[in-house]
Design a protein around this nucleic acid. Structure first.
Lengths: 205, 205, 205, 205
DNA sequence: CGTTAACCGAGACGGTACGTCCTGTCTTCGA
DNA sequence: TCGAAGACAGGACGTACCGTCTCGGTTAACG
């Protein structure tokens, strides 16, 4: 019965970390720099070297923790936008969706939009990035949106035979594609889109 | 030393070109190589050097004619897809749209889809590319689509107050975004999307 | 005895010239431009393209007549400096040499000096240039100088056993080397050099 | 993030270098390749790319350490010729100079001569190269030569009023200029030159 | 006085090398 | 073990010239 060498006073079961622990200041600085660079000047100047320079961190430190630029961009994006977009929750599912779409549109018009573009662009030459983006961003948002739609169906606000993923696509894809194509995403347009798509979703025809 | 005397009144409209004429064999070889490289391995290996190597043309010749990789990609794309996607023309606008969406989906599943992704990605760091893509591809397609929708309205097949650009977005954006996100675009899904969106567009509610 | 086929009535031995004759305006413009470019900014910007641009002549015209940049530089140099340096002719050979050295020094301090440097530099990667320079410039000058030295010997001003080429080298090489090394070549220094070298050449020890 | 704390009072004079140290194998390989290329085929094929290829080193590594081709050539030259030319030291200054001149002539006839030409040629379009060459090669040699001349004066072998730099020029410039003009530098000629110039330098006229 | 051969301007083309920027890996030191 | 610093191999960039080539238009001497 060899007693496990434990750092005295440490909470047992905790994985023993040898050597110098990871600096969280570094991590923050890097993600922050990545976010800023992307939102300021897009992909063109989004470079590991640039991030290192702006954050004052060594290049190798970045490589140690993020396998690709895409991963870095995504983590910076998520860190910054986490829970900025909260789904509302009123009695009308349709109203909730509209509010939510306007929130998304607002976000996309800002720095986060440029980053989202960068991530998708980067993903075109790196499937991992797309996958990570799906896991970290798309899927959660879709789940939340699906919940509202399902509520609307339960409400009898929406048709019972609604194909939820398809409606989601019809509602949100135009926003993102316009962003990618550098076309404006103003609120009246969003309102119009929501009305157009949701008209076919309402129950009681 | 000798001033090139402009012969006025010569074959009107026909520009007189001095110097050795541009080699169309070169142009073809380059565009072809660009198309192939993009559709085979995406943006990652789409490189001016690579295009030069594959086409057997000097790098400087490429730079002479295309200012950016984006311009090259677009021209290769247009050259290859020109009039591959023709809008059908039957009595039912709705049916026409569905057929057309299936055609687009088919194209996007092939090499042209990867190129389209490449162009959009490239465009994220070069607005010119996006602009050229809009002029050369988006706008013409949108015009054709709008014609069908307008016909549907005239037919009384669709509601009279339809906002055409919005419907276009709702119909086609999901296709393109799924492509960019590497999600499958199979025919049933397309069918479903068309039905979902068009349901709200039909006249006679 | 086969009669040579001759253009009847032409001065025998004259080559028959068909077609448009060479434009001497072109030739002048090119040589002038070459000279100017070289004397203004040295070898660095001495470029066939540059000469063509400055002279307003097509690049191919230059290539037609001059095989290398070196040949062009030399011809420009000779055209411009031809008989600018005349050997004086007084009673004292020593005095003549000193005057002459000062003239050479003066020329080397000006634009022609920079060109001479350019020619020698160019010659390091093209033996033809060196050869042409020797034929067109060095040899004639050496002949003139040798004449003076020979006169000095005949005069009994100089020792009878003088090795003329060696004395020439000792007198003129330092001037050229200083030029190449960007060291100043002022008149007192030249005077000093002449005295130092010629002291050992005088007769009557 | 962590500031590099200067450890004061550490091994004085010894600079503390952060990061991976420079590879001396690289440096050697590069200089060797540069020397070889220059001595084999002169300036014509002396190219950063060529040096990189022959030395098996990345082009960027060369650019990191040498600002210009000239600097590279000079360092290669100095590395190879360092202390190959030692000034002799006997009782007769005149004899010492003659021996020394023959040594220089011998060196100039070999690969080092071609390199010297390359350096001077390169220097014609880059003053820095000339300057570096003066500092690294000319000045030290001149100092050594001046010492002998001064000794000869102290000896009463040479005239007391000798202008040392001028004599140096008269002795050594012809050697270098002949090299640049691709004229042979054989020992009898050198002997002759030395005699001719030094005759006017001897004391006791 | 029309031929006609060489000239000239213009510019495309295949190339070579440049010098820069960034990538991803590595090596060393200090914390 | 982490992080800073920075060397290194390597790949692509976009530029500048090179030397060759193909055109069309010009022009002086010949027939």
């Amino acid at each position: 019965m060899t007693a496990a060498m434990m750092t005295p006073g440490k909470t047992a079961g905790q994985v023993r970390l040898a050597g110098r622990p990871r600096s969280s200041a570094c991590r923050q600085a890097i993600l922050r720099a990545a976010y800023e660079l992307l939102s300021e000047s897009g992909l063109r100047n989004f470079t590991i070297e640039g991030v290192a320079a702006r954050s004052g961190v060594a290049r190798s430190t970045i490589y140690r923790w993020w396998p690709t630029k895409g991963a870095l961009a995504i983590e910076g994006f998520l860190e910054a936008t986490a829970s900025h977009i909260t789904f509302p929750h009123t009695s009308s599912a349709k109203a909730d969706l509209k509010v939510q779409m306007r929130l998304v549109a607002k976000m996309l018009r800002g720095g986060a939009g440029r980053i989202l573009c960068g991530i998708i662009a980067e993903g075109q030459s790196d499937p991992e990035t797309i996958a990570a983006f799906a896991v970290g961003y798309l899927t959660p948002r879709r789940r939340e949106c699906a919940a509202i739609l399902r509520r609307g169906i339960d409400n009898r606000e929406f048709r019972a035979d609604l194909d939820i993923p398809t409606v989601q696509s019809a509602l949100y894809s135009p926003l993102h594609l316009r962003l990618l194509l550098r076309e404006p995403i103003d609120d009246p347009w969003v309102e119009n889109l929501a009305e157009t798509v949701l008209r076919g979703c309402l129950a009681g025809d």
